[in-house]
Simulated assay, not measured.
Amino acid sequence: MAERDDEDREFDIRWADAAELKEPSARARMLAARWKENPPEPQPFRADPEGVSRPRSGWASAAIVFGIVAVVIVLLGYSGFRAPY
């Protein structure tokens, strides 16, 4: 009989989604209370943090990677590196 009760009490996601009132999370409640007294200042979307330099362009990064690969190939060639087969 107890097993049958457990099956009847199984969580039904449709029932939970249909709830009229959904309680906000603890973090949402904390931020709402904090912002009621001291609202945050507007910020641009994905604003750059202070003191961080701008990243290199895609071409500069690609040139650095290809340069490093070329240096490794040259160093392996001069060192006499041979494949084991």
Score class of each variant (00 low, 15 high):
A16W: 15
G80N: 02
P84W: 03
I73R: 10
A70N: 03
R82I: 05
G77Y: 09
E10P: 01
F11D: 11
F45Y: 15
S25I: 03
D5M: 06
A47H: 00
S61C: 09
R56Q: 12
D6W: 12
A16N: 09
G51S: 02
E41M: 04
E23W: 08
P39L: 10
V74K: 02
A2E: 08
D17C: 10
D12F: 06
R14D: 13
F11S: 10
M30W: 09
P40V: 01
Y85C: 02
P39C: 08
A26P: 08
S57Y: 02
E37S: 14
P24Q: 11
E50F: 12
P49S: 09
G77E: 06
F45I: 13
A32N: 10
E50P: 06
L75N: 00
R27A: 03
A28R: 15
E50W: 07
A28S: 12
D6F: 14
S25T: 11
E3Y: 12
D12N: 05
I64F: 05
R82K: 12
R56A: 13
A62V: 11
W59G: 05
D48Q: 15
D12W: 04
A83P: 00
I13E: 15
F11M: 06
E20T: 07
V65K: 05
E50R: 07
A83H: 06
P40L: 03
R4V: 12
R9W: 13
M1Y: 04
I13A: 14
M1H: 05
Y85G: 07
A19H: 06
P40R: 03
I64A: 11
D48K: 15
F45W: 14
K36M: 07
A70K: 00
F81L: 08
S53N: 05
A70H: 00
K36C: 01
S61R: 15
P84G: 10
I64E: 12
V72N: 00
R14I: 03
R4T: 11
A2D: 05
I13K: 14
V65E: 04
W15G: 04
E10Q: 14
R34Y: 06
I13D: 15
E37A: 13
G77W: 12
A60G: 00
V71D: 02
V72I: 15
A62H: 11
A16T: 02
D6R: 13
W15E: 15
F11W: 12
P42V: 01
P55N: 06
Y78S: 05
D8A: 07
L31K: 07
A60K: 08
D12M: 04
E7G: 01
S25L: 01
V71R: 00
A26R: 14
R29F: 01
A60T: 08
Y78A: 09
D6Q: 11
W15M: 13
A63T: 04
E3T: 09
P39S: 04
V65Q: 01
N38G: 01
R27Q: 09
F66I: 07
W59C: 02
A60V: 07
D48L: 06
S57G: 13
